[in-house]
Design a protein around this nucleic acid. Sequence first.
DNA 1: TCATAATGATTAGTGTACTAAATAATAGCT
DNA 2: AGCTATTATTTAGTACACTAATCATTATGA
Lengths: 158, 158
Amino acid sequence: MNARSNSGSSPLLLIENQLCFALYTTSRAITKQYSILLKDLGVTYPQYLALLVLWERDGLLVQEIARALELDGATATPILQRMEKLGLVTRKRSAEDERRVQVYLTQKGRSLYDRALEVPYELGRATGLNEQIAKRIIKQMNTIKKHLAAQNRNAAGL
Amino acid sequence: MNARSNSGSSPLLLIENQLCFALYTTSRAITKQYSILLKDLGVTYPQYLALLVLWERDGLLVQEIARALELDGATATPILQRMEKLGLVTRKRSAEDERRVQVYLTQKGRSLYDRALEVPYELGRATGLNEQIAKRIIKQMNTIKKHLAAQNRNAAGL
DNA sequence: TCATAATGATTAGTGTACTAAATAATAGCT
DNA sequence: AGCTATTATTTAGTACACTAATCATTATGA
């Protein structure tokens, strides 16, 4: 049974709309919770994500950070500029290739690491899901994203 | 096993961070897909959601629409103002209570209904999940939101 | 080689989202 | 009635996110 066969019910209640709406509102609720937990650190959720990848590997390109966060470069740039203004990172044009900009953690950026370790722990308690269910949801989210990407690849290929 | 006991692995890989990140990126991917499907209608995803609730019941207050979309009133107002500029709705101060603003669909707003019915159908194909799994995810998202709300109620009560 | 394409980053412009503060009107209380 | 608290909406200010366009630099290929 697909959505079309369900035309008697209201569009608000169609399962596809419900699922997307649930993800939309839950994602916002989580981001809000992160902003509470990250207030002490003085960073936002996307900034925290950028820190996570830089703590993994320093000196990444703007593009690499954007790809890791699944963000457009045009979104990553202003985030990293704000982080530079906060004194968390520095941005340097690469010498070999002047197009590239590498992002490095400052001492201050590195210093947030220890306090940041507490964040996912506190947030994990807040979501109230066990690890097994969380893993299943992560897999299903990846399924959705893969499906959407394939859909758009086909649409672009026409 | 909680996050703390997992202190050997990187913070990026902690299950809580992974879950939240998956929801964050998937929600954005879905919104992007909606924006493609809604381009013909000339509305954004939040505007589409507002239309859904108004098609259910016309003349709702700004606050009621905000609550239905789980948005702050301060976010709903500019969305509805843009929709008014697009000629989709009109906003009228209530006569009995001058604080209240009621939102009504215009003829143009009503006329989008038929085309909008196709949207969740096309999006459902795009996500690639069956109804049963979708329903389970919706339930789990509600669990997370309830948990977060309870957490914050307790924090406020201290 | 040199015109052209591709790449990496940024800027411009629009539309959310959020908190906090302002505004205006109504409700409640004494 | 008049003071105070509450309610509904809006405005102000900050920070994403997205598309499209721009700019500089590097890669390419006839």
